[in-house]
C-alpha cells in the first residue's frame, strides 16, 4: 500500500460501510413489512466498493449512480435521514418524496442521482467531468455501473468520449455476477469487464470488490491520473450482493447456499473489521461503539421517516414547468 490511511480515515471507512449495511438490512425488513412503496434494490455485500471509491473523493467531485444506489449515496455523504424519508416517499426526503429509492440525488454532495435507466449515468458523468475540466477545478467524476450496464451502448460511447476529450472520469464497473437474473458469465462477452478499457485507450484494472484496501488503492491511482489531466480509467470491482435484484426477488436463479457461503466467507465488512483490529491495531470496542452509533442512527432515521408527512397534493405540480 503506497498511501497509509490514518486511523481516523479507517474508522470513517468502517462507519460508512457499517452504515450502508445497517441501512440496507433495515430496508429489507421494512420492505417486507409493507411500509416501503415501489422498487428497492439493495447494496448489502458491496459496501467496500462504494466506500473505497468515495474515500478518494471530496464534496466537489461528482458521482452518478444506478438503481442500486443507496451505498453510493451514503458513501458520498448524502444525509441518511433524508434518504430514508425519501425511500418512504415522505416530504422530508432528499427529493421531497418525488424521486424515491431509484432517484436519490444531492448536488450539494456531488451526488448526481441514482438512475432508473441501466447505463443512464456514464454520459452524465462525462458532462460533470467536462465542467471540471473547462473550469480547471481539478475535480473528477465517477460513474458507478453494473455488469448489466457494462453492455450498454451509452457506457461504450461514454468511455470513448471521455478518452477522446481526456476527461477526468473514473468508470467503476461493479460486477456482482448478475444483471437482474442473468449471469454476467453469459452476458458479458469478454472475461473481465476491465479488459474493455483497452478498446477505449484507457487503463483498466480488475480488483476484488470485497477488499476495501484493493478498491481504495485502484481508485487512488485512477483519481490521481484524472486530476492530473491524463484522462479516464476503468476499475472493475468483482463483488456480490446479498439480496435479490430487487426486494421480493426470490433469487431462485442463484445457487443453493450461495449467499449463505458469501456471507460466511467473503463478507467485506467482516474482512475489513478483521484487518482493522488485526494489522491496524484498532480496539474492537472502537468498532463496537461505531456499530451502536449506526444502529441508533438507522433506528432514528426509520422512526423519523415513518412519522414524517406525505407530500401535499399541491406538490404534484411544483418543480416542473407547468402553465397548462
Amino acid at each position: 500500500m503506497s498511501v497509509a490511511l490514518s486511523v481516523e480515515d479507517l474508522l470513517e471507512a468502517y462507519r460508512t460501510m457499517r452504515t450502508i449495511r445497517e441501512f440496507e438490512d433495515r430496508l429489507h425488513v421494512e420492505f417486507a413489512k409493507g411500509g416501503i412503496p415501489g422498487f428497492v434494490h439493495l447494496y448489502a455485500g458491496e459496501e467496500a466498493s462504494a466506500t473505497g471509491v468515495c474515500m478518494n473523493l471530496n464534496d466537489h467531485d461528482h458521482i452518478a449512480s444506478n438503481h442500486r444506489g443507496h451505498g453510493h449515496s451514503i458513501a458520498k455523504g448524502v444525509d441518511v435521514h433524508g434518504m430514508m424519508a425519501e425511500i418512504f416517499g415522505k416530504r422530508t426526503g432528499t427529493c421531497r418524496g418525488k424521486g424515491g429509492s431509484m432517484h436519490i440525488a444531492d448536488f450539494d454532495r456531488g451526488m448526481m442521482g441514482a438512475n432508473g435507466i441501466v447505463g443512464g449515468g456514464p454520459p452524465l458523468v462525462c458532462g460533470a467531468a467536462l465542467a471540471h475540466k473547462l473550469r480547471g477545478t481539478g475535480g473528477v467524476a465517477v460513474a458507478f455501473f453494473g455488469d448489466g450496464a457494462s453492455n450498454q451502448g451509452t457506457t461504450f460511447e461514454s468511455m470513448n468520449l471521455a478518452s477522446v476529450w481526456k476527461l477526468p472520469v473514473v468508470f467503476v464497473a461493479e460486477n456482482n455476477g448478475y444483471a437482474e437474473a442473468t449471469a454476467s458469465k453469459f452476458s458479458v462477452a469478454c472475461g473481465d469487464i476491465a479488459t474493455r478499457a483497452a478498446a477505449f485507450g484507457m487503463p483498466g484494472v480488475t480488483v476484488d470488490g470485497h477488499d476495501f484496501f484493493a478498491v481504495f488503492e485502484a481508485m487512488r491511482i485512477a483519481t490521481e491520473r484524472a486530476r492530473r489531466g491524463d484522462g479516464p480509467s476503468l476499475i472493475e470491482c468483482k463483488l456480490d450482493r446479498y439480496y435479490g435484484h430487487f426486494e421480493g426477488d426470490n433469487q431462485n436463479y442463484r445457487g443453493p447456499d450461495e449467499v449463505k457461503n458469501l456471507r460466511a466467507n467473503k463478507d467485506c465488512l467482516q474482512r475489513f473489521a478483521k484487518a482493522l483490529t488485526g494489522d491496524h491495531g484498532i480496539a474492537a470496542e472502537s468498532l463496537a461503539a461505531i456499530d451502536r452509533d449506526v444502529l441508533a442512527l438507522i433506528e432514528d432515521a426509520v422512526a423519523q421517516a415513518l412519522a414524517a408527512p406525505n407530500p401535499e397534493p399541491a406538490d404534484l405540480l411544483t418543480d416542473v414547468y407547468i402553465k397548462y
Binding site: C126, G127, L130, T154
Partner: peptide, 28 residues
C-alpha cells in the same frame, strides 16, 4: 477556443454529457 467542441458521432454520450454538464453549472 475549447468552449466549442467537436464530438465523436455518439449522440447518447455527447447529449448526455451536455445534460450532465448542465447539472454542474454549465449552460451547454
Amino acid at each position: 477556443g475549447n468552449r466549442i467542441m467537436d464530438t465523436p458521432i455518439s449522440e447518447s454520450a455527447f447529449v448526455g454529457a451536455a445534460v450532465g454538464a448542465a447539472t454542474c453549472g454549465m449552460r451547454p
